[in-house]
Design a protein around this nucleic acid. Structure first.
Lengths: 151, 151
DNA sequence: TGTAGGATCTGTAGTTGCTACAGGTTCAAG
DNA sequence: CTTGAACCTGTAGCAACTACAGATCCTACA
């Protein structure tokens, strides 16, 4: 894997492990197109390039992308992630700031859950009214046509 | 409000109450731009036009838009709504077909709820670890950087 | 009859977070 | 030296709207 030639070309020990975009993608589970998209919108930094123009990532960028992925999985928007990374990069963040952002996000998640639970309840009720028969009349359709009934 | 002139111009009694788009919007709570959007993508039918080119809606279209709105509020996609309306318009739907679509939708809603509940749990745990202090170190950030920890 | 204004018209572009090409390079192995 | 995989840029598409710009219609009032 590691070839003799490579050892002589290394500029610094810290850049020994530069990754191509494909390898970065495999390691993080983030789609290649998505990585380039993150770069375009400024969520990921512009990486160094090889002479041929291929992106060369380092360990820091690997961690950063993992951070982004994890945050996305937790439902943070790219805007929120950008803010978090900015705080972290500037080194100016405080624990309470981060806590606050997290709690705001948590609140939005809880709101969504409660909205969806309401939907679930209404859908369940509608479906329960339904005979499931082979007939062209259905209380679900009736309910949908009746804008006044809401639960 | 109702003028003598209008009474003579009426082609049919059933079209006595044609609505302009603004009035339709007010009655259904659906944004004007959204109504035109629904027309463009074929979810709402092309309405009749006045001589000047203004859209003139009838009661049926009012009901149809109310149906769409209600369905959207219940989280049905426009694609699903299109299918439902198609069944209804063709008069070929059976109650069990509608029931099935509703149950499929309900299943997706439940899946979303369970996904969000997982998020909620993780976010809550992360926030609980946090000192909320005025210091530049935060277990939330640490957790986000650590892609391996998932709950 | 003229005009002011509100409502409407069309068409296009923006939003979020990606994904999917097309058509062209680069790079490593055989 | 060629083949093929991996990479490059740039653009367009998805859902479900929303937000204009710039034009036209319509009605009421002077």
């Amino acid at each position: 894997m590691l070839q003799v030639q490579e050892l002589f070309l290394m500029p610094k020990i810290t850049e020994l492990r530069t990754l191509q975009i494909g390898e970065l993608s495999r390691r993080t589970g983030v789609n290649i197109e998505t990585i380039r998209y993150y770069e375009r919108i400024g969520v990921m930094p512009n990486p160094l390039r090889t002479e041929g123009g291929h992106r060369a990532y380092n360990e820091h960028q690997l961690k950063q992308l993992a951070f982004i992925k994890k945050s996305r999985e937790l439902g943070f928007s790219l805007e929120e992630i950008r803010a978090l990374l900015h705080l972290v990069d500037a080194g100016t963040y405080t624990c309470s700031e981060v806590h606050e952002m997290t709690m705001e996000h948590l609140e939005r998640v809880r709101q969504k859950i409660s909205d969806l639970r309401r939907l679930e309840r209404v859908l369940k009720a509608m479906a329960a009214d339904c005979s499931r028969g082979d007939v062209p009349e259905c209380p679900i359709i009736d309910a949908l046509f009746d804008a006044r009934r809401n639960s």
